[in-house]
């Protein structure tokens, strides 16, 4: 497994997943020997297509799904044998809007806090509702709330007992722009206060903008976990597209030692280069092109996004 950066490496993992497997009664293998360390204070985004095993992984960590084999420790405690100590640290925001119907917002968050064994704290819970723009709705019954409000309530419930680790399962699926913005502000605030955040998403731009590390899951396997920056550098490609004034049938022999591809029916040359190296060879290439008698119409640069990397990984 790739090493996390220095600041995380010096710490012990707060969540440690060891060869976790889950095969459902139907025979479907949702997790296949997943091992992963999550470090205190980081934001880890788990990417994967639908049915990849993201929710099963979170559910197995939180104790909702019994793993077939493997183990999970949370803050050093085994999540099955020392479930009380382990689960106290965790807050979970599920993917579905799974809420009761007839209780009020205020009662439901107090219920959540009590369930985790925490003493009543009116001040904290009031502030929590204010932060999530739910304070006006505190006496409303859950069934009367809109989808977006319900999502906020689920977040409030997960944070009601002041967890050290927060799992957000597809937090922005079907959420409007305002709530999404609020949610990322909240994630940023929580992160500042030292909360570790694990989120699953299939919106790649989300992972790109917010995560420290990115894990990619497909068919129950963790394909990779890496620092977002290094992932994009290592697996990301940069391409210089050179648009020619006239189409050509083949690349001139004088340009053979450059890694060039003829694209767009001979209209463009594509030059793929390493973003990490000091010398990209672009100056020499452009001179060589000019020497070969080709005239240029336009130049542009294409950099692969996390999405391209993800699609490549999942496809292969």
């Amino acid at each position: 497994m790739p090493c996390p950066t220095k600041e995380f490496r010096i710490m012990n993992p707060i969540v440690s997943i060891n060869k976790l497997c889950k095969t459902y009664a139907s025979g479907h293998q949702a997790l296949n020997s997943v091992s992963l360390d999550i470090y205190e204070g980081e934001i880890l985004a788990l990417l994967g297509p639908n049915g990849a095993g993201k929710t099963t992984l979170i559910s197995a960590i939180c104790g909702i799904v019994s793993p077939t084999s493997g183990s999970v420790t949370i803050g050093g405690y085994d999540n099955l044998r020392q479930f009380r100590k382990a689960r106290e640290l965790i807050g979970l925001v599920p993917q579905e809007l799974t809420l009761g119907a007839f209780e009020t917002v205020w009662n439901t968050i107090n219920f959540s806090r009590g369930l985790f064994g925490k003493k009543k704290n009116t001040h904290y819970l009031e502030q929590l509702l204010k932060d999530l723009s739910l304070f006006d709705k505190r006496d409303s019954e859950l069934r009367t709330l809109s989808g977006g409000m319900k999502r906020r309530v689920l977040i409030a419930k997960a944070l009601s007992h002041e967890p050290r680790i927060l799992f957000l399962d597809e937090p922005t699926a079907g959420v409007d722009v305002e709530l999404r913005k609020d949610m990322w502000n909240m994630v940023a605030r929580l992160r500042k206060s030292g909360v570790t955040i694990i989120l699953t998403t299939h919106y790649i731009e989300e992972a790109e903008s917010i995560a420290d590390r990115v894990g990619v899951i497909n068919n129950g396997e963790l394909l990779l976990v890496e620092q977002k920056q290094s992932l994009m550098q290592n697996l990301g490609k940069k391409q210089l597209i050179i648009e020619l004034r006239e189409t050509i049938d083949s690349i001139p022999a004088s340009l053979n030692h450059y890694a060039l591809d003829l694209v767009n029916e001979g209209q463009c040359l594509a030059y793929t280069y390493d973003t990490l190296s000091k010398q990209t060879g672009i100056t020499a290439l452009l001179q060589a092109i000019s020497a070969a008698g080709l005239s240029l119409r336009d130049l542009h640069v294409k950099q692969s996004s996390l999405e391209d990397i993800f699609v490549d990984l999942v496809k292969s």
């Binding site: 479930f83 009380r84 599920p94 369930l115």
Partner: peptide
Amino acid sequence: FFPKFTGSIYEVLSAPVS
């Protein structure tokens, strides 16, 4: 049955409760 039906049972299952 009702929390099982609505799915809100997830919370009880993930809480530090025996």
